[in-house]
Nucleic acid binder design. Structure first.
Lengths: 230, 230
DNA sequence: GATTTTATGTACCATGTGGTTCATTTCTGT
DNA sequence: ACAGAAATGAACCACATGGTACATAAAATC
């Protein structure tokens, strides 16, 4: 029972895409694999996710994963790059404009929170990447240096605020940026553990609203002119 | 070649602990397993870590892991509980005292940062737990509700600050807590991804010092009386 | 000294792992 | 029409996985 007839015809292949199809069938297959792989990596991490299970979840077969992505690492890299393209590239704080710089700063900060909140999968991929010491993103050109745009937008806001006289000028833009993404990211990434520790449901809509407001408050109060005196 | 002689004597067992030994040999074995398992789970997550590899890293055998911990899940639970006992239980902001409430708040916040910074393994376990939706910590009595003490210490500080007149009274203690641990935790948990995105070495000693100061600044400025006007 | 309990090592198992081989079908360019 | 390229399916592989059965040496208890 070890050898079987290998010469019998295999069948069942789907037809290839007709010309008028917007996306080629191959692209459809690729996309389908990428979607399922994203779910799996987000749920189980790189090592925890199983190629067999991912393949079973797709409309196609394991063979196709290796055809299109070469290896598990290749698949993971593609997933990460797609996520960064989808989420990491969208600039924050550029949608609404505010008459005051302080208002723009609040919009920027709350926008950052919204971005993480609305893209929890992305947040989880970033967490997994950090657990994995960034081995993948370090080698992906498409993923590196995605934050420069967000930082320069923040600098723009702060320069305006300083010119306006509403903001102090003795802090690093970078530190304000860290404060904003720190509070915003942590609110999403650690929602579960913090919720368990405090015995609260931090996913409740009003808690989400509180958090969003908090990120704005932290940013504005950090940049505002104040005598703290500690 | 499927069956072998199973009646031949097996040997090589270490001697059990003599009475005067402080710790029994069994405890030593348990501790050794726990140490290596912690390293493995921190590096690869729950599903990614391999029992075989953990066993190989210990001074004993896989058999002992199952003898002492029952299953992979049991081992992971023990690792998590030990980490929370070691780190999660240490109260923050209780070491130094300050004449002013604002000073105490800064000490509290910077202490929180120090705690995460000095216990990166703990931070990584918490991240892994969040990726795993808290499945383990939710069922561990020893891990739940660890933050209550830290919150009440913070409340104490804020009440003093309000009484002193140095702090405003129109904010939730909880929000200040989220701001502090958000910036502090994120500084450690996302050091790698943020560093890659910004092309900086955020592990450099002066960047660590900046971050610690930042956490203190964020806390104090959040609690201080200010007209922000956004 | 005999018995029970604790603690341990070795070999083993069914199943899952990432990855490959071979064969095949459909499309595209000439 | 035909050659080559692109895309796919089924079966297979060596090895790793979490977990267990069996045997046994040392200590504790009686």
């Amino acid at each position: 029972m070890t050898t079987q007839d290998k010469t019998r015809p295999r069948s069942g292949r789907r037809r290839r895409a007709a010309d008028q199809d917007g996306a080629a069938l191959a692209e459809e297959t690729r996309g389908n694999i990428l979607d399922e792989a994203t779910k799996a990596f987000v749920a189980h991490g790189f090592e925890g996710a199983s190629i067999n299970e991912i393949a079973a979840a797709t409309a196609t077969s394991k063979r196709m994963i290796y055809y299109h992505f070469g290896s598990k690492q290749g698949l993971y890299t593609a997933v990460l790059e797609a996520a960064y393209e989808r989420v990491g590239a969208q600039k924050i704080g550029t949608k609404q404009t505010s008459p005051t710089a302080m208002g723009a700063l609040r919009a920027y900060a709350e926008d950052a929170f919204q971005k993480f909140h609305a893209n929890e999968d992305f947040v989880r991929l970033v967490m997994a990447e950090n657990l994995n010491k960034g081995a993948t993103m370090r080698n992906s050109e498409g993923v590196r240096q995605r934050s420069a745009g967000n930082l320069s937008r923040l600098e723009e806001i702060c320069k305006a605020g300083i010119a306006e006289g509403s903001m102090r000028d003795d802090f690093r833009i970078l530190d304000l940026y860290f404060a904003v993404i720190g509070v915003a990211f942590h609110a999403v990434s650690n929602r579960i553990s913090t919720g368990i520790s405090l015995d609260m449901d931090l996913g409740a809509p009003d808690e989400i609203a509180f958090r969003q407001r908090l990120v704005g408050d932290v940013a504005c109060r950090y940049a505002a002119k104040t005598e703290v005196g500690d």
